[in-house]
């Protein structure tokens, strides 16, 4: 095989890995959108907030330390060595559930039957609130995240693939970060678990029912508000997983909430109401932008990854606005 082909293959595999990240964030969007028709702009910030909280618990940070110090003139910052990873993840999840619950009680319950644009504006407000609240609670500095996932290039894969190139050519083997492989594995597990849950449990069925028809859901005894708390908690969980992966890779920092914007083109490709769509859309964007950068990026001055996804989405909007898997919108006249 020619090294050129092998390099392209490497780009594709790395694109798939990046795409999984986009898929995860998009999945969080789809869950909420299906159940309540809300496009949750705050999904990315939620991932950031979850990651911050996890690191805070892990390292034993005192929440709101800065605020406390300013008011009382104290100098506290850590209460100890922190919790072990498993406990910290469980506690973070509890925080996300509490957050979903409060959100429903304080904000969402007043938003029933509002126009989509108002709901959307609400989530923009929510995004800024969470960003500020996260800063206030855990500080604005960049943090490293270590949940014990292995990382670094896979030497085994490099050795394994070195021999693939035709003899005489210079090829040093394929480079893939083990962390990405782990992330992919966890993401796949998560999606399978979510699918099984929604197919074979009472609550999963109730989630699908609410996504399908509110009136019918109420009639069979489903409380929409309970379901919304569950859905926001679930998407908080998905955000936590995304936050862990991205945080382990690039540190916990504000840019995390920006990758969430990449989920928008992913959703345009996959359709806002389709879970498989979110996943496949994420993979297409991931692979597409890496391949594009690799093949013609140089000609265009590089950094095409910043805009490729959006241009692709725009093209998509022109010939298939409902996305690859979304339901076709037929206006009844």
């Amino acid at each position: 095989m020619s090294p050129l082909f092998l390099n392209a293959l490497e780009v594709i595999v790395n694109g798939l890995m990046a795409g999984i990240m986009y898929s995860l964030v998009a999945l969080g969007f789809v869950l909420i959108f299906k159940a309540s028709g809300i496009f949750n702009y705050a999904q990315g910030v939620t991932a950031l907030f979850a990651a911050l909280t996890l690191v805070g618990f892990q390292t034993g940070q005192v929440p709101f330390a800065h605020l406390i110090n300013t008011i009382f003139g104290t100098k506290i910052h850590h209460w100890g060595d922190g919790f072990n990873t498993i406990l910290a993840i469980i506690l973070t999840m509890l925080v996300m559930i509490l957050f979903a619950w409060l959100l429903e009680k304080i904000v969402l319950k007043h938003m029933v039957n509002q126009a989509p644009i108002i709901l959307f504006m609400t989530t923009i407000g929510l995004a800024y609130f969470m960003e500020g609240f996260g800063d206030l609670m855990w500080g604005a500095d960049i943090k490293t995240m270590d949940v014990g996932l292995p990382s670094g290039g896979s030497l085994w894969l490099e050795d394994f693939t070195k021999g693939w190139a035709a003899s005489g050519t210079e090829y040093y083997g394929m480079y893939i970060d083990v962390l990405d492989v782990w992330a992919a594995g966890i993401a796949i597990l998560l999606v399978v678990a979510l699918t099984l849950f929604s197919q074979y449990t009472k609550t999963g069925r109730a989630l699908r029912a609410v996504a399908d028809d509110h009136q019918a859901a109420l009639t069979v005894g489903i409380s929409l508000r309970t379901i919304w708390i569950i859905v926001w908690s679930l998407s908080g969980f998905v955000a936590l997983v995304a936050g862990i992966m991205w945080g382990s890779k690039s540190g916990v920092q504000f840019s995390l909430s920006l990758i969430a914007l990449k989920a928008l083109p992913v959703l345009i490709l996959g359709g806002f109401t389709s879970i498989p769509g979110a996943i496949i859309g994420g993979l297409i964007i991931g692979v597409g932008e890496k391949l594009f950068e690799y093949s013609v990026g140089g000609l265009l001055g590089g950094a095409t990854e910043n805009w490729f996804a959006y241009v692709l989405a725009l093209a998509f909007l022109m010939f298939r606005p409902q996305g690859l898997f979304g339901e076709k919108i037929i206006e009844r006249v």
Partner: peptide, 28 residues
């Protein structure tokens, strides 16, 4: 007012929701 995207079986199962009691933990 049915759940149009769900199967007949699943639609009928939603009818049982008021009788199902186990908590979210066991379901998970």
């Amino acid at each position: 007012a049915l759940f149009k995207g769900m199967s007949t079986l699943d639609n009928l199962m939603t009818g049982r929701i008021t009788h199902m009691k186990t908590n979210l933990f066991w379901q998970s």
